[in-house]
């Protein structure tokens, strides 16, 4: 569902993403980890069409995000770290707008909004202006808008920041339910515990390069041989842990063990 092939993106002389190649198939929750400035948000922005790669290709459901930007956006749901909501619209009006530009008629729009309202418990604040919402309320509305059209791919950047424990639980359960139904979820996060709990596969990126890629069990096997949890393993792999330069990048075909050699 998500395919990145040899993707490079620079900001002037700084290489933000350096030859990234990976795929996320249908029905998988992929957690993308990395220190600050590792290239996570740049990768996400290329997936959702806000940036284009300098070289390489990014495909969503087989659609190139550069040449078929609009079609790719149709099958994609995106929740940024700080979602933008039109502050002079109510939550319902915002959902209506996103549904209408996605091509749903009035009846279908109402049906889908009702489903999201129930799913994310939006009833109590749905008809007030979004400018009055707390961060958690905004985040829940943004998720409702991103999932309104039942996308094939969901891309989320730091989904649990600012949410209370109940909302985090709700979100995690919801993610697993959607993945079970076939959705591919790409989640960037700093919360290692969340990644370890719900992700099918974990990728660690540093200095724009993928330095580890493996399933949840493979990650556990890796750190249980030397460390007590994912955190020291993550710190050892990334330059944050030892202050050294980033390890060489890993190709998806390589085994996690070989990636660390």
């Amino acid at each position: 569902m998500i395919e990145l092939h040899n993707v490079v993106r620079t900001y002037g002389r700084k290489v933000a993403v350096d030859g990234l190649t990976m795929t996320v198939p249908e029905g998988e929750l992929f957690a993308f980890l990395g220190p600050n400035g590792a290239g996570k948000t740049t990768t996400i922005k290329m997936m959702v069409g806000l940036l284009r790669p300098d070289s390489g290709t990014v495909r969503i459901a087989g659609l190139d995000v550069v040449t078929h930007a609009r079609q790719a956006a149709a099958v994609l749901g995106y929740v940024p770290e700080e979602p933008y909501l039109y502050e002079k619209l109510t939550g319902r009006e915002f959902l209506e707008f996103t549904a209408r530009v996605r091509g749903f008629d009035r009846r279908e729009t109402d049906r889908r909004i009702a489903a999201q309202v129930e799913q994310f418990r939006l009833e109590s604040f749905l008809d007030t202006l979004t400018e009055t919402y707390s961060h958690g309320m905004k985040q829940r509305l943004a998720f409702a808008a991103a999932l309104l059209h039942d996308p094939a791919v969901l891309v989320v950047d730091e989904p649990t920041v600012g949410l209370d424990p109940a909302s985090v639980r709700l979100l995690k359960d919801h993610f697993r339910k959607r993945v079970a139904a076939g959705m591919a979820i790409f989640m960037s996060t700093h919360t290692l515990a969340v990644a370890e709990e719900i992700a099918d596969r974990i990728g660690i990126v540093d200095h724009g390069r993928l330095i580890f890629l493996g399933t949840r069990d493979e990650v556990r096997r890796q750190y249980e041989s030397g460390e007590s949890s994912l955190e020291p393993f993550f710190l050892r792999l990334t330059s944050n842990g030892n202050g050294q330069a980033a390890p060489p990048k890993v190709e998806p075909s390589e085994s996690p063990a070989s990636a660390q050699e």
């Binding site: 959702v48 069409g49 806000l50 930007a69 609009r70 079609q71 956006a73 149709a74 994609l76 995106y78 940024p80 979602p83 933008y84 996103t98 530009v101 996605r102 091509g103």
Partner: peptide, 10 residues
């Protein structure tokens, strides 16, 4: 940024 991530005609 929101509009460019929606399937809206540019």
């Amino acid at each position: 940024r929101l509009l460019l991530t929606l399937p809206v005609r540019v």
